[in-house]
Design a protein around this nucleic acid. Structure first.
Lengths: 124, 124
DNA sequence: ACCAATATGTAGAAATTACTACACATCAAA
DNA sequence: TTTGATGTGTAGTAATTTCTACATATTGGT
C-alpha cells in the first residue's frame, strides 16, 4: 500500500519533475523505449491506486502526480533504514557519511548543514 | 541484475546478520510466518542468482550470503540518489539532514562525523 | 458532415514473484 | 536394519507486474 513498483516509479519520477503531461509526452521522457499502450497501462494502475490524477484537455487526458514526492521519499528512506540500520534514520545518515565518496567541499557543506540545524534547533 | 525482490531481501538481511544458517533457522528468524518450503524456494532463487552459497553439514545445507551487504547497500543508495537527487549521493545526504527528524545528540554525532572525515581527508 | 490523425479502453498473454503439496532422501537411535 | 524425525527436490498453482493487439472514440480542419 506504500511503495511503488519499478515501472510505477519511473512514471512518477517524470511527473514529479515535469508536472502535467499527456501519455505521449511521458512516453518520450521514459528512460527506455516503451509502447504507448504499455505506458498507459502503468498510468491506469497509478490512477486506480490514487497516485496520479488526470484532467481532460482537448483530445487527451493530462496526468499529474497526486502522491507527493516528499512522502514517497520518506517511505523509501525509512525502508532503507529498516533494512540496513535497525530503523534508525540517524544511523543511516551516519553510515552514508562514513561510506560514501565525498569531496572536501561536499563534506564541508554537510557539516555546515548540521551546524545550521543545530543552531536553529536549540534557542541560539 | 542488481536489486533484490522483497522476499529475497528479507532472507539476505537475516544471513548478513546471523552468518551461516540452515533453512529451519532462517525460518524462525523470518519477520513473518512463512512455510518451510516457501522459504526454501527463496533460497533456491538466491542460490541460482549467486547471492548465497551453501555447504552440507550433517543432514542439512547451511546457507551464507555470497553477495556482501555493503555492495547491496551501495546499490540501494545510488538508486535512491538517482531517483530523488539527480544521482548525487552528497545531495541525498543533504536532503536527509534537512528533512529527517533528528535529536540534538544525533545531529551532534553527525556533525562530529563530518568533522572527523574532514580532518582525516586533509593532512591534519 | 466527413476524414485523418491522435487518444482511449479493454481483453488477453507473457514474465516474474511467491507459495503449496507431497514424494523421496538422510541420519541417529533402538 | 527398521523407524521416525528432520531435511531436500520438484512439479504445479496463484498473484502480481508488465506488455500487446486491436477495436472504439474524440477532435480539428476541410
Amino acid at each position: 500500500m506504500a511503495s511503488f513498483t519499478t515501472g510505477e516509479l519511473e512514471v512518477m519520477q517524470i511527473l514529479w519533475e515535469e508536472g502535467e503531461l499527456k501519455p505521449a509526452q511521458i512516453q518520450e521522457k521514459y528512460p527506455r523505449p516503451i509502447k504507448n499502450a504499455a505506458l498507459r497501462f502503468q498510468l491506469k494502475i497509478l490512477l486506480e491506486k490514487g497516485h496520479v490524477s488526470r484532467r481532460k484537455n482537448g483530445k487527451a487526458y493530462y496526468y499529474t502526480a497526486a502522491t507527493p514526492r516528499k512522502g514517497a521519499f520518506k517511505r523509501m528512506v525509512q525502508r532503507m533504514a529498516d533494512i540496513y540500520c535497525q530503523g534508525s534514520c540517524a544511523g543511516l545518515i551516519a553510515e552514508l557519511i562514513k561510506t560514501q565518496k565525498l569531496s572536501d567541499e561536499e563534506i564541508q557543506t554537510l557539516r555546515e548543514l548540521a551546524e545550521t540545524r543545530q543552531a536553529g534547533g536549540t534557542k541560539s
